[in-house]
Amino acid sequence: MDTYKVDDSAKHVKIDVKVGTTGSAETRVYLDTITADNRICESDDASNGNIPATKAGINRKLFLRTLIVNTSLNFSNIPDSAVKDAIKMTHIIYTLDGGPQGEKPFNNLDAIVNDSDISSVEITKRIEFV
């Protein structure tokens, strides 16, 4: 699992998500669990899953917590047979900034893909603050 260093400061850590896909996308960002109580932010309807730099929390309060970025993809605009390839071609860049490591990009290569229902594919990325 990817990690991002935090320090004892009260400086904000920010998350930025950029989604490149042939389908339509929605992204939601959580801390620790994918539940409504822990949702930090979500993409706007017109953004196709992209989230501009948004505060995730302050450095010292994020220590040992896990940032979970869940992107739901909808490929109803392409044939079912092409969905697998479309998932493979989906690239997501998650960028964290505000910690001692500064701006650090992550990709979705180690993200967990739930494609058991191709009408609603989920890509879940975890980054631990250490």
């Binding site: 320090d7 004892d8 620790d32 450095n59 220590f63 040992l64 967990i112």
Partner: peptide, 29 residues
């Protein structure tokens, strides 16, 4: 309870074991 920044390795190890048990029982996915 989560350790604060600067916690010892032992404290972090203990926390990781406890949160793992909690996650297995209570977290989805």
């Amino acid at each position: 309870p989560r350790p604060t920044v600067g916690a010892t390795d032992e404290e972090i190890k203990k926390y990781r074991a406890a949160i793992k048990e909690y996650r297995l029982a209570c977290y989805c996915p």
